[in-house]
């Protein structure tokens, strides 16, 4: 049971990052690799402010703002200009990869490559029967649930959410109908950056953080998004939870050495046999991308 709970908590982290990735990928077709840089960069900013004597709420708020600003800047200075020139998927992908490398290495240059922690004291542990959960894990669960609830309510019940769904379905038609695509794209990058920044801070509080911790979680998020389904926003959440639980079960009951290989074999299997993922949404042939 403890393994299942830990797996679910880990899965929630993957699920949020996967949702953040999907949030940009679905409407813009941009592989937002720089999201991994946001995840890495945010805890360092919070840590720097804490070291400088700022209070925890202020440090976290400034770190979140920095994460959002970074994600926004990637769209404003990189993806939007490329999109205006109708650059290919690869050009967007490579430039995003370049931004990731620059941000992560610059972070390492300023704050070093060693592992850091955001907590200053030990974590409280709560017991529920045979299951133990730490305070940091509790906040990860709360954070993820708030993010999911907030996002899906926004998506389902607000006017911008409706436009956003339309953008994800058919960006060209939405543009033809006179909607401001550029602002919607900015919205996608801002919300995506906010999600990655929140999870970056929460996991940094739980397990610590270092400069190269972003890419592994980003890769898992991509796998989750493929497994869950790339045509919906619910798919990555389902994929992330499944992946988190599966990885912990394999790690505990089989062998921790082969978890990564198993994860990516699963990705290959999905790509070959069910590329649309578990929540594949069938579309008319001409509507498929």
């Amino acid at each position: 049971m403890q393994v299942l709970v830990n797996g679910t908590i880990n899965g929630l982290t993957i699920a949020v990052i996967a949702l953040a990735f999907q949030l940009v990928y679905l409407p813009t077709n941009v592989f937002h690799v720089a999201l991994a840089a946001v995840y890495v960069f945010t805890p360092f900013v919070a840590w720097a402010f804490l070291q400088g004597g700022a209070t925890a709420p202020l440090a976290f708020a400034l770190a979140l703002a920095a994460g959002i600003a970074l994600s926004f800047a990637t769209e404003h200075f990189n993806h939007a200009p490329l999109e205006r020139r109708q650059a290919s998927f690869s050009a967007q992908f490579i430039s995003s990869l370049g931004i990731y490398v620059v941000v992560v290495q610059a972070t390492a240059l300023v704050w070093g490559n060693d592992q850091k922690v955001l907590r200053t004291s030990g974590d409280a542990i709560w017991k529920l029967g045979s299951v133990a959960i730490t305070e940091s894990q509790f906040w990860v669960v709360v954070g993820a649930i708030v993010i999911f609830a907030g996002f899906f309510v926004w998506l389902r019940f607000t006017n911008v959410g409706l436009q956003f769904r339309a953008l994800a379905d058919n960006p060209k038609e939405l543009a033809v109908r006179g909607f401001n695509i550029r602002n919607l794209r900015y919205t996608a990058f801002v919300i995506s950056g906010l999600m990655a920044a929140i999870m970056g801070l929460l996991t940094a509080r739980d397990t610590g953080f270092w400069t190269h911790g972003g890419l592994p979680i980003f890769l898992l998020a991509m796998v989750a998004s493929i497994i869950g389904g790339r045509s919906t926003f619910l798919g990555p959440v389902l994929g992330g939870l499944m992946l988190g639980v599966l990885r912990h079960e394999v790690e505990w009951h089989v062998n921790s050495r082969w978890v990564e290989a198993g994860t990516f074999l699963l990705l290959a299997a999905f790509l070959v046999f069910r590329p649309g993922g578990l929540l594949e949404r069938r579309a008319r042939l001409e509507a498929q991308r």
């Binding site: 990189n78 200009p81 490329l82 650059a87 290919s88 998927f89 690869s90 050009a91 967007q92 490579i94 430039s95 990869l97 370049g98 931004i99 990731y100 490398v101 620059v102 290495q105 610059a106 390492a108 240059l109």
Partner: peptide
């Protein structure tokens, strides 16, 4: 070591904007 990777990253981003086919390439990766 850090500056080397930062330079690579910057070069990648700049090339995608200014010369997507690379310094001496003829084909734009698509």
């Amino acid at each position: 070591a850090e500056l080397r990777l930062i330079t690579y990253g910057l070069v990648l981003v700049l090339l995608m904007h200014l010369r997507p086919q690379g310094i001496a390439g003829t084909y734009r990766v698509s």
